[in-house]
Design a binder for these strands. Structure first.
Lengths: 214, 214
DNA sequence: ACCTTTAAGTTAATGTCATTTGGTTTTCGA
DNA sequence: TCGAAAACCAAATGACATTAACTTAAAGGT
């Protein structure tokens, strides 16, 4: 049993990522070992090195797959939300937070990945997380075309919105949001999203850093 | 050389935390080994087990020390900012973000700590991160007493503000904030903070989840 | 002053990983 | 059909974290 026959060939890269995604439902990323992944795939740990440079590279593939899944979920939610720009932005935002809460291990990996290995040629790997920002920016711009919210720099507004969503998702995943005495976590999330969706871009264009004001 | 003389006694717990804090300036938390900490302290790795239950416990001590440092920095900044509630809230916010940018390894440990070990008796350890929320809430309430911003639930506003700060800090530490074409990162941070400080609490009290609106 | 116990280390295992090395067999292009 | 390349595996290496089994100093009683 050295090299397997064609008929029993395994798609190791695909299965390894799938296995790791599955393991992340029950284990933290730091506890997912190549031994565990290999067992789930049906091979030996060194076999993974034929498809991934090292453990960090495998986790980065999972990290990228996580962003792809998030993006898909957001696009589906926006499609479901119909054509009203505000509804679509709201759907994308709520989906973001739901994704994080439903996939805490994956979400943590997505935002605390192992150090990027120098891909040995690729100078500046484009971060797949960028698309998480892009989808928000697009939804914001669509809203501005519809007049809501008016007068804000889309880049700044998108980063601010993403910061809020990521921060809240992070705190939720880490269980650091104290239980509100008078409202459920879902209500809190919904209200924060509504607040931001209606107001985050509504900054007066002339707003300046405090130091430069009178 | 089994047990050291009194005159050459080391304060191992203190020095271990200090050493780990120092190592975090150059290494990620996952790369900080007990061997490295022990060397910096001046002892052997097993000696650390006399003072910490395990590696995770040591990292948790560092995590707690990180929040203590952050809190100190925020209180100092607020003291410097004088008595105007808005200036104080702004100072606390900007200090939060500066702390994260200046201590990326520590900040990541603070928000992606190893799993809490059941402290074998302590039922619910109070999270020192709670104080990061409390200081913001206090500053918000002080602002409300001064009339700015009006009419918001302080708990919800504080969580929203913390989410934004933590999210932005996180994205900055992970280098996931794209360089804005027309403004520096510092300017972006300042504008986002100003935006939120002036408006985060300004939600109309009657704001409801979209599902319950007409 | 002795003797016992406890404290605070040390060195020597153990076991788990990640990763490398050195085959072995199958595929595939020429 | 032959030789190189591909895809595995089993065994070896080296870091660690963690535990076990001593060793000596401090403390406290007698």
């Amino acid at each position: 049993m050295a090299r397997p026959r064609k008929d029993q060939a395994l798609d190791v890269p695909t299965r390894a990522v799938a296995a790791a995604l599955h393991l992340l439902k029950t284990h933290a990323a730091t506890d997912v070992s190549l031994t565990m992944v290999a067992e789930a795939v049906g091979c030996r740990p060194p076999a993974l090195y034929g498809h991934f440079h090292n453990r960090a590279a495998l986790l980065h593939a999972v990290h990228d797959a996580g962003f792809a899944r998030l993006l898909t979920a957001q696009r589906e939610a926006m499609a479901q939300a119909g054509s009203d720009p505000r509804s679509r932005l709201r759907a994308a935002s709520l989906t973001y937070l739901r994704f994080a809460r439903e996939n805490p291990g994956l979400y943590r990996l997505m935002f605390d990945p192992p150090p990027r290995a120098p891909p040995d040629g690729a100078p500046v790997t484009r971060d797949p997380a960028r698309q998480a920002l892009t989808v928000l920016r697009e939804a914001l711009v669509a809203g501005q075309h519809a007049g809501i919210p008016p007068g804000a720099d889309p880049d700044a507004a998108a980063i601010t919105l993403w910061s809020l969503l990521h921060g809240m998702a992070s705190l939720l995943v880490l269980d650091r949001v104290p239980a509100a005495h008078n409202r459920s976590t879902d209500t809190m999330i919904t209200q924060a999203v509504d607040l931001v969706v209606t107001r985050i871009g509504a900054a007066p264009p002339g707003l300046r850093p405090m130091a430069s004001r009178s």
